[in-house]
Simulated scan of single mutants.
Amino acid sequence: MTEKRDLLKVPLRHRTIREFTEERVDEETVNLLLEVANHTATSTGMQSYSIVRVKDEAQRKAIAEVCGQEYVARATELWIFIVDAYRNSRIAREQGVHLDSERDMDRFFQGYVDGSLAAQNVTNAVEALGMGAVYFGSVQNNVDKVIEILELPELTFPIVGLGFGVPNQEPQMKPRMPMKLKVFEDRYETYDNYLELIADYDKEMETYYDLRDANNRVDCFSKQVVARLEGVIPERTEVVNSIRKQGFDLNLKSE
């Protein structure tokens, strides 16, 4: 049992790595990680996702601009995971089958979940190999631009970016809120005073940010919640329109 528990040390030490050394990831390792992605469980076995490995410097810089994070362009490896219902649509059409279901909401979310699971599997493998990784959910800041940069056809959609390589930093592990607020038995639990329940966590987060960068003050978690709600990125609120432009029928009904 002890040896089995040792296997959990890697995921329990997870940290986001944003800076990498100049050491390249060899192609054998890249291919191994792609095999890890390829063996990820997928909804009904349809494998409705794909990966775009971004190597072109101009494309990297353009994606970094969308993300508002210049270090995106410096990631040793930059992979964008995408919903891909296009491939299966073509497979069906080449058999003379043209169905509206190829672009329905179920197809979209199957691909979204498939791609997200694959991204996490790759991250687990990256860390098991002693490297580090960072997710770029910020590709959602302007998905239309990312679609343009990657020349994505209809029935595809960017989910998340993943940067990885050999770490060039040793960040602290980020504290997490109490499990009591995130894990329930049989039914969802609600509480009368959440601020009281996360008071210690707020203090822990303040200490974490103070130690990480004393010159770049960051508020406690509860204040960050408010800041995130206030700091809306307009393009992200209209993402459903981008999904539609990619040919998916989300079948939204007005009240």
Rank of each mutant, 00 (worst) to 15 (best):
T2F: 07
D6W: 10
L8A: 03
L8I: 11
H14M: 04
T21K: 06
V25G: 12
T29I: 11
T29G: 05
T29N: 06
V30F: 07
V30P: 02
L32E: 13
L32K: 09
V36W: 00
T40H: 04
S43L: 01
M46N: 10
M46Y: 09
I51V: 01
I51Y: 09
I51G: 03
R53I: 15
V54M: 08
D56Q: 12
E57R: 12
E57K: 14
E57Y: 01
A58D: 15
Q59A: 15
K61D: 05
A62V: 05
C67Q: 01
C67K: 01
C67D: 00
V72G: 02
R74M: 09
A75C: 11
E77Q: 10
I80Y: 06
F81W: 12
A85F: 15
N88I: 09
S89A: 10
S89L: 12
S89C: 05
S89F: 10
V97F: 08
H98D: 13
L99Q: 14
D100G: 03
S101K: 14
R103C: 14
R107N: 11
F109I: 03
Q110M: 11
Q110I: 08
V113A: 03
D114S: 06
D114V: 03
L117D: 03
A119K: 10
Q120D: 06
N124Q: 10
V126L: 04
V126K: 05
V126I: 11
E127G: 02
G132E: 02
G137I: 02
V139K: 00
Q140F: 12
N142R: 00
N142A: 04
V143C: 12
D144Y: 06
D144W: 06
K145P: 04
I149Q: 04
I149C: 05
L150A: 09
P158R: 03
I159A: 02
I159Y: 00
F164G: 00
G165W: 08
Q169V: 11
E170I: 13
M173D: 07
R176T: 10
R176E: 05
M177K: 09
L181N: 05
L181Y: 03
F184I: 00
F184R: 04
R187D: 13
R187F: 15
R187I: 10
Y188T: 03
Y188Q: 00
Y188R: 08
E189V: 06
E189N: 11
N193I: 06
E196G: 09
A199Q: 08
D200C: 00
Y201N: 01
D202I: 02
D202V: 03
D202Q: 04
D202M: 02
E204M: 08
E206W: 10
T207I: 12
Y208A: 00
R217H: 15
R217A: 14
V218K: 15
V225I: 06
A227R: 13
R228Q: 14
L229C: 12
E230A: 13
I233S: 06
T237R: 10
E238A: 15
K245R: 14
Q246K: 02
F248I: 04
D249P: 05
N251H: 15
L252C: 13
L252H: 10
K253V: 13
S254G: 12
E255I: 11
E255T: 11
